[in-house]
Nucleic acid binder design. Structure first.
Lengths: 187, 187
DNA sequence: GTCTATAACTCGATAGAC
DNA sequence: GTCTATCGAGTTATAGAC
């Protein structure tokens, strides 16, 4: 792994742990084992480096969501597989956490990948839900877009509750509760 | 309003907008119209001031949740009133946002009010849900604790989605989706 | 109780040697 | 391509005058 690569990975880790404001170029360099000169040679500065890191993190999230949502099988089973997938719950969502950083939201280059990720995820889930309704797995009374937003919100909020509690328990309960509600909503 | 009071209110506003790491004593002082000396006379430093601000914000959240949840009326109606209450969606939750700040989670004095707030809120909602099940409004198949966690997570995640989208739409959709699922889960 | 001055440090970024 | 030195500003906090 060359220096530019290590700098991006280091930035990804620090943005996840400490957010944009809490991440200093100095900390990025130390973690990457690179010096000032190296960093400012490869990147114009902190926003440039953050843009590269956020784009990669967003791409990875999409790719991992596709693994479960685009798999073969019944709609509800794919949603359950996605919700129950192994996650580092106490670390929170590396994309969702960026929405708490006003400096990220204020910079269109940093904000755009975050907005696109959740737009894409809601649309993808909505399509799977619509499929489940057509197949007779889910009640036609459910609105796919609304329900998709509820599912993504349950995940994002589950992370918040887990970090507040210092335990993954509330996350697991929130997921279980959402799945129970979905399973109760059969035609 | 005296200086100490203005300093706490100023800290509350800044913690909400910019988080703990993003909030400097200087910014607190400027917003409060108080000087360095005044601040360090009334408070030992940034963590002390933040502790006072967080305690007050947490108390206020609980008090406002009680307004809807402890009101008279059927269980489901109280939950809907709580979920549909007027909110500054794009500002996010002033308590939930603190879970993204590692410096808050690392300090027990700052972390405790955050943990207690969500513990209390989940317990309160769980009690209302249990009441709804007993009254025959909701299916006995629902687990009150799980469902309560799902509801709180939907709110917290709804804020995340709204800030990501730069619009309150996904928040409203997530709430609507959760209410539709709850209403579909009748005995 | 509030002020100003200052300390010791980190911030994000640039300059210029090698 | 990476280094070290340095910049000016901002950080949290203390000291001491008033």
């Amino acid at each position: 792994m060359d220096a530019a690569e290590r700098l991006v990975e280091s930035t990804r880790a620090l943005l996840w742990e400490r957010g944009y404001t809490g991440t200093s170029p100095r900390a990025i360099q130390e973690r990457a084992g690179a010096g000032q000169g190296s960093m400012y040679h490869h990147f114009r500065g902190k926003p440039d480096l953050a843009a590269a890191a956020i784009r990669r993190t967003a791409d990875e999230l999409r790719s991992r969501a596709r693994d479960q949502l685009a798999a073969p099988g019944p709609a509800l089973a794919r949603i359950e597989a996605y919700l129950r997938r192994d996650r580092d719950v106490l670390l929170g969502c590396p994309v969702g956490r960026l929405t708490q950083d006003p400096d990220v939201l204020a910079d269109p280059t940093l904000h755009a990948p975050v907005a696109e990720t959740f737009d894409w995820l809601c649309a993808e889930l909505s399509a799977v839900l619509a499929e489940g309704i057509t197949a007779g797995e889910l009640s036609p009374a459910l609105d796919p877009d609304d329900t998709a937003a509820t599912i993504v919100a349950t995940l994002q909020g589950g992370y918040v509750l887990a970090r507040a509690a210092g335990s993954r328990d509330p996350f697991d309960r929130a997921i279980q509760g959402a799945l129970s509600l979905l399973k109760a909503a059969t035609p």
